[in-house]
């Protein structure tokens, strides 16, 4: 201890070099799902869930009894109805386009369906360095495993990064290391949707591709993680980028205020996370 007190700078430099070596190793062969990390995740689950339930109860009581009681319920009902109608409208549009395509391409396979597990978002990342991470209250005991896609009924949210027994960590599509193989829904132009830390951009769209503001972006299902034809977001801006077009994509839901999500029980084709 006396040595530590006498040579703090030296110790710090040694630790720093150790850190850079350690970090580089982790980047090259990261095994996220180690059991000690899962244990920490499970350990923090109970207090996080308790805080989630308590704050939920307090907020709910405030909204139900102190604020306008009837209006809140009505608002909730109407919002659900709008969500359902939007979903229906999108499916009809989708069916119409699909119908046209199928007229030309006979023998195309239909989409397969997957089981889902619904979950509550109980916490967020404690670090600004990777703030696009949330913690949900379902884990391996609910059949969740690493790499499974996470969505809401409005579109893709992200995928499972780390699984504990009772809770899991979800990395959002807006995170720097997220990438989804995607199509422009209207024209089937293909590209990669990447996270930028707070939003998303669609890259590698061919220069001749027909992309315009307002186009819906959907998953292609070819990356091995996400199922085919799930909504990612809407194009809000396009620009030329070298020999390609780059489009800024706004997710259809507010990822900063996520409350409920569904985990799609679909195992990734390859268990690679930091591709």
């Amino acid at each position: 201890m006396r040595f530590l007190r006498r040579h703090p700078i030296l110790i710090s430099i040694v630790l720093f070099f150790f850190a850079t070596q350690f970090i580089s190793l982790r980047y090259e062969g990261r095994q996220v799902g180690d059991s000690f990390s899962s244990f920490i995740l499970t350990l923090t689950y109970y207090p996080q869930k308790l805080i989630f339930i308590l704050t939920g109860e307090i907020v709910s009581a405030w909204q139900n009894y102190i604020e306008l009681v009837g209006v809140r319920n009505e608002n909730e009902r109407l919002r659900n109805e709008i969500r359902k109608l939007r979903q229906e409208k999108f499916h009809l549009w989708e069916a119409e386009l699909q119908n046209d395509r199928l007229k030309k391409l006979l023998g195309l396979k239909g989409n397969s369906t997957y089981d889902v597990v619904s979950a509550n978002v109980i916490a967020g990342s404690p670090s600004i360095l990777r703030s696009q991470v949330v913690i949900i209250d379902k884990g391996s005991e609910n059949g969740i495993s690493q790499g499974m896609p996470v969505a809401t009924y409005e579109g893709i949210v992200g995928r499972i990064l780390l699984v504990g027994e009772k809770s899991s960590e979800v990395i959002l599509i807006t995170d720097d290391i997220s990438a989804v193989d995607a199509y422009i829904h209207r024209t089937r132009a293909r590209g990669i949707v990447k996270g930028t830390g707070g939003g998303c951009i669609m890259e590698y769209l061919e220069k001749k591709a027909d992309v315009s503001v307002g186009d819906k972006v959907i998953s292609s299902g070819k990356d091995g993680f996400f199922p085919k034809e799930v909504v990612i977001g809407t194009v809000v801006e396009t620009e030329a980028s070298g020999g390609f077009i780059r489009a800024r994509v706004l997710p259809d839901m507010d990822l900063n205020s996520l409350e409920e999500v569904v985990v799609i029980l679909k195992l990734p084709k390859e268990k690679v996370l930091n591709e």
Partner: peptide, 9 residues
């Protein structure tokens, strides 16, 4: 662990 960062950072 909770922020999904590289362990060690």
């Amino acid at each position: 662990v909770l922020s999904g960062n590289l362990i060690g950072l």
